[in-house]
Amino acid sequence: MKMETARDVIRTFLTDSLDAPDLGESEDIFAAGLVGSMFALQLVEFVESRFEIEIENEDLELENFNSVLGIVRLVERKRPA
């Protein structure tokens, strides 16, 4: 069985939650108006619990959360090597 990558997990979470099956990996989910602040909080909590990392306030920058690729990069940076 193929291992699910961080990219798969994040993409599935976003496409399912936002009902946006065609979401591009670098598409800006905030600019597209797909996301409210309640979902943004859920997204942060999902990333923390799913990847067992702690998101600090300093990590709450647009480029870390506004796209699948941005979140993947954040997760890779925060995960223990």
């Binding site: 996301v35 602040s37 943004a40 942060v44 709450l60 647009l62």
Partner: peptide, 13 residues
Amino acid sequence: IERQVRIDHMMGR
């Protein structure tokens, strides 16, 4: 609260 405020800021709200 700090998180939510940062998120609102991040989203330009």
